[in-house]
C-alpha cells in the first residue's frame, strides 16, 4: 500500500516535471516565433529610399519612420548568407536591450545593440554590436558561419547603415576569444598606437587569413556574440568600412 502511494506521488511529480518542461519549450518556441514575426514587420517599416535620401528629422529616409517609433535606433545591420537583418539600437548601458525588443517589451532574444560607448555622429573608430547567439539561428545565431573561410570568401561584406550614412564593411578578422584574454570591446575611439595594436591583435587571432588590413583612420565594425565552445568565450568578427 505504502509502496503504491509512493509510486503515485512519484508519478505525479514526473507528470509535473513533464508539464513544466513542455511549458518551458512552448514558451521558448513562442518567443522565437513572436520575435521572427515582429522583426519581419519591422523590416516592412523600412521605407523605400528612392524618393529622398534624408527625412525631415535628418536621418536617412528609409529609417525615419522606425526612428520615430524608437529614438534609440542607431542603424541597420545586414549580413548576406545569414538571417542577420535587424535594426540596431543603442542606449546608456549594455544590459537594457539584452532581453528587450525594438519596442522595449520583454523578448528573450533581445535585439542587436551597439556598445553604449560607441557613437554614430561623429562615428566612433570602432562600432561594436552585440546580439544573442540564439539556438534557433536568430539574432547572431548564424554569425559563427564566419568561422569557415569558405563562408568569408562568399559573404565577406557586411552592410551596416547608421542613421545618417550607409556603409559597407569588409571582414578582416574572425576569431574566438574571451573578454579576459583580449578586451576587444574597449577599443572604440583610438589613437594611432592603439589602433595599430588592435589591428595587429585581431589579425593575429584570426581563424584564417583574409588578405585585408586596416590603416589608422579606417572605420571599423565589430560584431560580438557568445560562443558555446568554452565557458565565457565570444565569437568576434571585425570588419573595416570600404564604402
Amino acid at each position: 500500500m505504502i509502496v503504491k502511494k509512493i509510486l503515485t506521488v512519484f508519478e505525479l511529480l514526473l507528470i509535473f516535471v513533464f508539464v513544466l518542461s513542455v511549458g518551458y519549450i512552448g514558451f521558448y518556441m513562442y518567443q522565437s516565433y513572436s520575435a521572427k514575426s515582429e522583426y519581419a514587420k519591422i523590416r516592412e517599416n523600412v521605407l523605400d529610399s528612392k524618393s529622398s535620401e534624408y527625412a525631415y528629422n535628418g536621418v536617412l529616409y528609409e529609417y525615419s519612420k522606425l526612428y520615430e517609433e524608437n529614438k534609440e535606433l542607431s542603424g541597420w545591420l545586414k549580413v548576406e548568407g545569414t538571417s542577420i537583418d535587424y535594426p540596431v539600437v543603442r542606449t546608456g548601458d549594455n544590459d537594457y536591450y539584452m532581453h528587450r525588443d525594438f519596442y522595449k517589451s520583454y523578448k528573450y532574444c533581445g535585439i542587436p545593440f551597439m556598445d553604449c560607448q560607441c557613437k554614430i555622429k561623429p562615428q566612433s573608430d570602432n562600432i561594436i554590436i552585440y546580439a544573442h547567439n540564439m539556438r534557433d539561428g536568430s539574432m547572431f545565431g548564424e554569425l559563427d558561419k564566419y568561422d569557415e573561410k569558405s563562408f568569408f570568401d562568399e559573404f565577406g561584406t557586411i552592410e551596416f547603415d547608421t542613421l545618417y550614412k550607409k556603409g559597407k564593411y569588409r571582414v578582416i578578422s574572425a576569431f574566438y576569444t574571451t573578454p579576459d584574454a583580449f578586451s576587444y570591446y574597449t577599443y572604440i575611439d583610438m589613437d594611432r598606437v592603439e589602433f595599430d595594436n588592435f589591428i595587429k591583435t585581431v589579425k593575429s587571432k584570426s581563424l584564417y587569413n583574409t588578405d585585408f588590413d586596416a590603416q589608422y583612420g579606417d572605420k571599423l565594425l565589430t560584431l560580438s556574440t557568445c560562443s558555446y565552445n568554452k565557458r565565457n568565450e565570444r565569437f568576434v568578427v571585425v570588419a573595416k568600412q570600404v564604402e
Partner: peptide, 27 residues
Amino acid sequence: AQSLKANPKTGDSIPVFAVIMLAFLSI
C-alpha cells in the same frame, strides 16, 4: 575600469535540448 556589463553575455542560456530530454524521460 569597465562596468561588469561592459561585455554582455549574449548566449542563449535556455538549455532547449536538455529540457526536451527531461520531458521525454519523465513521460
